[in-house]
């Protein structure tokens, strides 16, 4: 069956939720992260279902152990069914790990999939249930092969230049 315009709108809004989630995590903007979830959402990141508060309480100190993260979104498969939807987002997540405990600075690179039950409530699509699936990961050492061009560094807080452009 051909997609309706309403389906396109829903898909676009659902994909935006994942884009905001990644921006929220990468800029450590936890208000933006929280806004991706319904208040009663259940998040399974490996062990058991976490509430949104529990998830943020776990993710925030974890993210602080990295000097930078980048969550690159690839495939975004969305199946809308009225006020609910299923979504699967592929993400390649780069985590720059500072030298620690004798291990030199390196990149921790993960192939993630986020499988979501989305719900539209009061006109807003948000995540009602999320499972993080880790397909593969590797730690890759950094080769010191000379510097690249100097560019403005990104920041992981509200001081990031992206906020100055609004």
């Amino acid at each position: 069956m051909a997609k309706s315009v309403e389906t396109l709108q829903a898909e676009s809004e659902i994909r935006d939720v994942q884009r905001r989630y990644c921006r929220g995590v990468d800029r450590m903007d936890f208000a933006m992260v929280r806004d991706c979830f319904h208040p009663d959402a259940a998040l399974d990141y490996g062990d058991s279902d976490l509430s949104v508060d529990e998830f943020v309480g776990w993710a925030e100190p974890g993210l602080r152990t990295y000097s930078m993260t980048t969550h690159f979104i690839g495939n975004q498969l969305v199946e809308v069914s009225g006020e609910t939807a299923w979504a699967e987002h592929y993400v390649v997540a780069y985590h720059r790990c500072p030298a620690a405990g004798g291990v030199p600075e390196h990149d921790f690179i993960c192939n993630f999939r986020y499988a979501d039950a989305m719900e539209r409530r009061d006109g807003q699509w948000r995540i009602a249930r999320r499972v993080l699936l880790v397909d593969s990961w590797r730690r890759v050492p950094l080769d010191d092969l000379g510097p690249g061009p100097t560019m403005k560094p990104g920041r992981r807080d509200a001081g990031d230049l992206s906020n100055a452009m609004r």
């Binding site: 990468d26 720059r96 990149d107 890759v140 950094l142 080769d143 560019m151 990031d160 230049l161």
Partner: peptide, 29 residues
């Protein structure tokens, strides 16, 4: 790994970049 931060403007019906900043999050060789 860069992020392009843009102000896009629609003029005469055409969206184009009016201001672009490029931010470097990390790099590797």
């Amino acid at each position: 790994a860069v992020r392009y931060i843009d102000r896009m403007e629609r003029r005469d019906g055409e969206w184009r970049i009016a201001r672009r900043q490029c931010v470097l999050d990390w790099a590797r060789s």
